[in-house]
Amino acid sequence: MTRKKHISNAIVYIVLIVISVIWLFPFVGLALQSFRSYISEFGGMVNYLIPKKFTLDSYKFLFSGECQFPRWYMNTLIIAVAATVFNTIIIICVSYALSRLRFKGRRALMNIWLVLGMFPGFLTMICLYFLLKMLGLTQSGAVPGLILISVAGAGMQYYVCKGYFDTLPKALDEAARIDGANRAQILLIMIVPLSKPIIIYTALLAFMAPWCDFVFASYVAFGYSASYNVAVALQQWVWTNDFQGYFTRFCAGGILVAIPVTILFMCLQKYYVEGVTGGSVKG
């Protein structure tokens, strides 16, 4: 029996090690490429993994005066932080209203939002662009524009948070009401402190999304490089023929984007797991 167990454990270990190698390979590859010099070696694609010489040239380029990388990084950070704060507030408000309050049109509202969610997001890109343009929030105003779009759509992402609120006992609310608290007080004093995990989960998702937004962000900021976010700027180094030999610099930029997001994610992983697990069961 124990012998059999040892063998099966050994198999599992082997499989897990193989999986880990496959999963880590792209990150290792990316990191190795970022240390290849675009000056003394070659900045484009190569078909070997380990650079002939390790240098920090690509990283130096990002922070040299030639490149607006710090600015793009700040833009993304601003969008991410603002979206985190406002989206989270909006999602909490919507979730509380839909979970705790009973009002006319509640079901209808939820159904309409469900139906709206079935339209692909890219469909409305051109229309959104012109709406933002009318508000002066494209090109040079793209950063607040992107925040606005993110916040405006946040209300529809209430499912997971509402599901969590649903599990908090209603008796709590009733007790507080007997004590004379109004509904706003109940939300602020009772529900929010009890919902720390789900709030962190919501905030984490809102924070991570802007780092990967290259489609709509490039549409809104088009032709105005001071408003780019990192994803827009870096993807054009790979895809636009204009930028020859930028591949190693793309890798370096990618690493710099990935590190803080990954660290943050790892720190808050516990909450993320709680959120996705809870969300998946409630549906």
Binding site: I90, C93, V94, Y96, A97, L101, F103, R106, L109, W113, L116, F119, L123, T124, C127, L128, L131, L148, I149, V151, A152, G153, A154, G155, M156, N182, R183, A184, Q185, L187
Partner: peptide, 26 residues
Amino acid sequence: VLDRNFDKTLLALPVLGIFVFTVLPI
């Protein structure tokens, strides 16, 4: 606005945002 009609307070901005930037474009 903070009690009996608290739902309207909470939902006003989200509903408006979704209307302008999702419903109207669709």
